[in-house]
């Protein structure tokens, strides 16, 4: 008897005997508006006020940074660039004024150099934007590289266990015990001159450890789940189990961890550049700007504040978005006891 025949026979048998929980149940149980997991997560994320505000601000900052002075040869709308020196006007003080006239201020005005000028007369707004571009670029590349490595190592260790796990996790432990800043500084000094992209990859090679541990933990628990056992019982090969069954169920954890990794990367890049191991002149980054003008803090504080403000804004908004994602992926929110 072929499957079809068997199926038809049994189906008619089941229905003929008035199988109680059959179609009636199906129709009824599904009368509630059903949403996919993804829809639920999206809905929760969009309702997370802090995350939404942060996301808006971050998008605005990214747009501002990349459109204002242009990027990769594409010209921007801002009149100055970040490398041509000019005549220093009024000790390079910012011309931006947000103080309205009725409160005794100068009224709203952008002026010639809203963020002021540096020692060489370069427009500080353009410089800050360039710094933000590089910092954001590095952060995202680090996020991608670190997540990839972390997921691969964590997944292998968590799925195969045994000596694979021991080897990979001991390696991870060794990486964790060495202070990140020290490794990054050594690598940064070697590769910092090779441009921000190389620097980003190098930092990514250092920052994956936390993610690897997290993913390993997820894999360890998911591989014992019954649906994974069911796949093994069907005869599925490891690659299928890893990519079709386990990995899709770790998307939430990976997304949250990657976001927080990006926030971390921004701070690490800042610290490295501040110490002189990161991005080098003539290019610039937010960390480098802060470091260059740390001595001007007392006399020309805007040279310190502007890049600082952007570092804080980017790091904070990314962190808030990470929090929002974590809340959105957390299934415990909807749990009701009965």
């Amino acid at each position: 008897m072929s499957t079809e025949e068997k199926a038809a026979a049994a189906a008619s048998a089941a229905n003929g005997n008035g199988n109680g929980n059959g179609n009636g149940t199906a129709a009824q149980g599904l009368s509630i508006v059903a949403r996919t997991q993804g829809q639920l997560v999206r809905r929760r994320f969009f309702r997370h006020r802090g995350a939404m505000i942060s996301l808006t601000i971050l998008v605005l900052v990214i747009l501002l940074a990349y459109t204002s002075i242009g990027f990769a040869g594409i010209p921007g709308w801002w009149i100055w660039n970040y490398y041509t020196p000019g005549k220093v006007v009024n000790r390079g003080a910012p011309t931006l004024s947000l103080w309205p006239t009725f409160l005794g201020g100068d009224g709203f005005a952008i002026g010639e150099h809203p963020f002021g000028q540096d020692d060489l007369g370069r427009d500080y707004f353009a410089l800050t934007m360039r710094g933000a571009q590089i910092s954001i670029l590095i952060a995202f590349v680090v996020g991608i590289v670190g997540t990839l490595i972390g997921v691969i190592i964590g997944a292998l260790a968590g799925y195969y266990r045994g000596w694979v796990e021991s080897g990979l996790m001991r390696f991870t432990d060794v990486m964790i015990t060495i202070p990140i800043l020290v490794i990054a500084a050594v690598l940064g000094q070697k590769f910092g001159g090779a441009g921000p992209l190389v620097l980003a990859i190098v930092i990514g090679l250092v920052l994956w450890t936390g993610l690897a541990r997290l993913i390993r933990g997820e894999f360890l628990s998911l591989r014992e789940k019954e649906f994974v056992e069911a796949a093994r019982a069907l005869g599925a090969k490891p690659t299928r189990i890893i990519f079709r069954h386990i990995l899709p169920n770790t998307v939430g954890v990976i997304t949250v961890a990657a976001t927080l990794l990006i926030a971390n990367a921004i701070l690490l890049e800042t610290a490295l550049s501040f110490l002189g191991f990161g991005v080098r002149a003539p290019d610039t980054s937010l960390g480098l700007l802060v470091s260059t003008y740390q001595n001007a803090f007392a006399t020309r504080p805007w040279l310190f504040w502007w890049p600082g403000l952007f570092i804080i804004t980017i790091a904070l908004t990314v962190n808030f978005i990470g929090d929002g994602l974590r809340d959105a992926f957390d299934p415990r929110q909807n749990r009701v006891r009965a």
Partner: peptide
Amino acid sequence: DLLKLVGLSPEHGNRYPHEFSGGQ
């Protein structure tokens, strides 16, 4: 056919598990 065999409707095949009750 398999869904029919176990007393479910084939139209439910593109839904996700969480949309079903324990028995289903």
